[in-house]
Nucleic acid binder design. Structure first.
Lengths: 342, 342
DNA sequence: ATATATAATTAAAACGATTTAGCTATATGT
DNA sequence: ACATATAGCTAAATCGTTTTAATTATATAT
């Protein structure tokens, strides 16, 4: 009720009997530059601390155009991968004196567009974006507008826009090669219907490994809806198991892996006896499964931290057009779902 | 690069040849109140649309003290419960024309304090807070300062602060009664070492049910570290199984349930043959477990939506001191981990 | 004809910080 | 002694909005 207003620069200035300019200068560490007397400077520091002054960031922003706010656009904050990524981004941001505003796009172009506008309107200094299908033009325009951006998880190779991402090709290459090494030949892949590079590269990594192993004829890719994958996954797996006699399945995201496990469970298909599995991203579901799941691990901490670092450099140094490209190597974690074939 | 500056009120005003005041008035729907001419009002609307004007929210906030920003303090955004809650809050916020800034406290008082200060500094209009142990004074002061707050997931019964939460007593009551009904008598509980009401109420619900069933002598509560629960859970379960001959375990959070499943897995204890289980919150881990886990379901969507609704009402109507209390009923979802005892 | 009401609009202050240009007093150079 | 340099500080503009009080012109009442 007794809504005490915060102490302002003016309050501090009045308390000492000087101008707000002087206080501002001293507190911004420009005392020398503006040749403020040493004793005066000291006094300002002391009094403003005593009065518990902290600058009004809104006012500072209005004047200077900086909010120390980072906008984060993910596809869904409740997706474990993105909530983990968000946590890392948050921590790194705090470390660098930023705070995160976020929004979820649901892989939808319009949502992405609206969200970005809202975040810019709130005055974010820069954006970390997980771009969705069809957002290339949007991102390009943003970059042209001079907005500091870093793409995360996926990117547009043709754009001059910085990104931090997994080596997606390597990811499925690792998975596929592992299965080949274990003696499987009828290896299939389940991936989203999306033209984003994370999906297409994962497909390429699989195809390439199969071809190099002389298994080009066995390439079998099922593509499922990005928005509502479950029914498609069910259909795909049923077909793979019953028609294609697939020996092993590579899933290209965590969500797909989990839908797959549900489906195989329902079909009473035993892992790994009836089919071998390589999942994506790990998690308790994989480790607590009756047959712990082999998976591709994404070093999401690095991916997320690099994104923040790049963005903050852009913001601070105005490196708007420097294209920083971070591609992190995946790791294969071998468990029980992909044993040597007898 | 060609950082085009946004069109301002002034730009629109100049284009028409009127004052910024007039434009502002019309765009805020106060034309009638200020008796602006109908033709003029129409023209302003038209031109500002043509020029693609959108207000600078920072400036607006500096003047009016509103940012349309909601601060969210959770304990950990990467915890599935809180990431799900965040997603709901985000959606509800957008619907009401707000955006969410968030931070994670890690159940730490100092972090919570710092975070709240940061968020207030960024000018949030109000806060949704998951309070941690020892934060009662902090929250009370905030309320006294006149900051709109709603607590989520946990609350302080003695404070005049609004909250939205699960009926925690009912939750463990449901779980315990279910196990009793199924014929178990040696029922134990695993809970955090925390004095927050969500934990203490869950303990009370269990104790009450046990006593009412004449099983007071069998009450067996293991309390584990909030910060690093894993080793404590392991010790607790080992003791419960080997020493106390427990027949059934009720877990009081999702994280504890999962740690418990890992431990039981390692100990080769079979569920439900060796021990029955009731978990908390559900999730793929429970459903895909070899013996799908019975659990208490928290209607997190309602809990989260109510929190936003209450907060926005506070912000808009200045209902700072109206204490809204929302307590949502849990549901028991019975699966295979708690069968009738033979 | 004079006072008063009403309609339509605007000037200017305010929010709280930063920064540029300028002011005053003392010190230095010649 | 006089111009100039320097040190130390301040006035005022600025960012983009909202709002209060004021202004002008016209209409109505007496």
């Amino acid at each position: 009720m007794a809504k005490e207003k915060k102490v302002s620069l003016k309050d501090v200035a009045n308390a000492i009997g000087v101008s707000t300019a002087l206080v501002s200068i001293v507190l911004n560490g420009k005392a020398k530059q503006y040749r403020i007397g040493d004793d005066m400077a000291e006094k300002v520091l002391k009094v403003s601390k005593e009065m518990n002054y902290s600058p009004n960031l809104i006012a500072r922003n209005l004047r200077g155009g900086k909010t120390q706010l980072i906008g984060l656009v993910v596809t869904d904050i409740s997706n474990p991968f993105f909530s983990s990524v968000s946590r890392v981004i948050e921590n790194k941001a705090i470390e660098l004196n930023y705070t995160v505003i976020f929004g979820s796009s649901d892989e939808n172009l319009n949502n992405t567009k609206n969200l970005i506008e809202v975040l810019l309107n709130k005055g974010v200094d820069g954006l970390i974006i997980v771009p969705c299908d069809g957002s290339e033009k949007l991102i390009e325009k943003l970059q042209e507008r001079g907005v500091p951006i870093v793409l995360l998880d996926r990117y547009f190779p043709n754009l001059n826009v910085s990104f931090s991402s997994l080596d997606n090709f390597k990811a499925t290459e690792l998975a596929t090669q592992h299965l080949i090494d274990q003696g499987y030949t009828r290896i299939s892949l389940i991936a989203y219907k999306s033209e984003m590079n994370n999906v297409t590269d994962r497909i390429l990594g699989y195809e390439d490994s199969m071809k190099k192993a002389g298994l080009g004829a066995n390439i079998n890719i099922k593509r499922v809806s990005l928005i509502n994958p479950k029914p498609d996954v069910n259909k795909a797996i049923e077909s793979l198991i019953n028609k294609s006699k697939t020996e092993a399945i590579v899933f290209t995201t965590n969500t797909l892996s989990i839908h797959g496990l549900y489906c195989l469970q329902d079909m009473q298909v035993t892992i790994p006896n009836d089919v071998a599995i390589v999942g994506f991203d790990g998690g308790d579901v994989f480790d607590l499964f009756y047959s712990p799941i082999t998976y591709i691990e994404q070093p999401y901490v690095q991916i997320a931290e690099e994104a923040v670092t790049i963005l903050v450099n852009k913001i601070k140094n105005g490196e708007q057009n420097k294209k920083s490209m971070v591609i992190i190597e995946p790791k294969l974690i071998v468990k029980n779902s992909s044993p040597k074939k007898d």
